[in-house]
């Protein structure tokens, strides 16, 4: 690919596009913005290919580009949050009271989730939803494992508290 092989580049894009899109969307919460970020990251990777150590895997390098740019974008402007509550969350089998309580819990949880700092929220989501390990997140964010663990603990504590309030676990 360093020689400008289009097929090799196409294969590289094909191999990493889904993960790149998922990570971009995790950062920006908007499909179009996520696609723009993924495209931008693939081009940046090509532009700076000479700085890449070919003996190492490509994905960690690409994902760091995505995360750095995505966090900058998220911080620079108000991120358009267009994710809607999936229909699955509204269970038609529930009674009105149950449904109302459930909706309230989810609204509260969603509020707490929105309050998390972007970096902390990303760490929690990568760990809980995408199956990244603490070590992988630390590498992705160019941070120490202890820092990642701390953010993970603090973020999860905040979210658990939001859930527990409605179960009566927390006064």
């Amino acid at each position: 690919m360093r020689d400008g092989d289009r097929e090799a580049y196409g294969a590289l894009v094909e191999r990493h596009l889904d993960r790149a899109l998922a990570l971009s969307r995790r950062l920006l919460h908007h499909r179009q913005d996520a696609e723009d970020l993924a495209q931008d990251a693939f081009l940046a990777a090509l532009q700076h290919l000479d700085a890449f150590d070919g003996a190492r895997p490509f994905w960690p390098w690409l994902s760091r580009i995505i995360v750095n740019r995505g966090l900058d974008l998220a911080a620079a402007r108000a991120v358009r949050v267009t994710e809607s509550l999936p229909d699955e969350a509204r269970d038609p089998g529930q009674g009105p009271a149950e449904a109302a309580e459930r909706a309230e819990i989810l609204a509260r949880f969603r509020h707490e989730l929105a309050l998390l700092p972007p970096r902390r929220k990303l760490i929690v989501q990568l760990f809980e939803l995408d199956g990244y390990s603490v070590a992988e997140i630390a590498e992705l964010l160019e941070s120490s494992r202890a820092t990642v663990r701390w953010h993970l603990h603090a973020g999860r504590h905040q979210l658990r508290r939001a859930l527990a309030q409605f179960r009566g676990d927390v006064p």
């Binding site: 580049y9 696609e35 693939f42 994710e83 929690v124 939803l129």
Partner: peptide, 30 residues
């Protein structure tokens, strides 16, 4: 926690056609 988080994690709406279009866009720009 993961189960609740997943409720707010809408499935990826990037359809196959959109994905192919994005790949073409990336390759054209490159």
């Amino acid at each position: 926690l993961g189960a609740v988080l997943r409720r707010f994690d809408a499935p990826d709406p990037t359809a196959d056609e959109q994905r192919r279009a994005l790949k073409r866009r990336i390759e054209a720009a490159a």
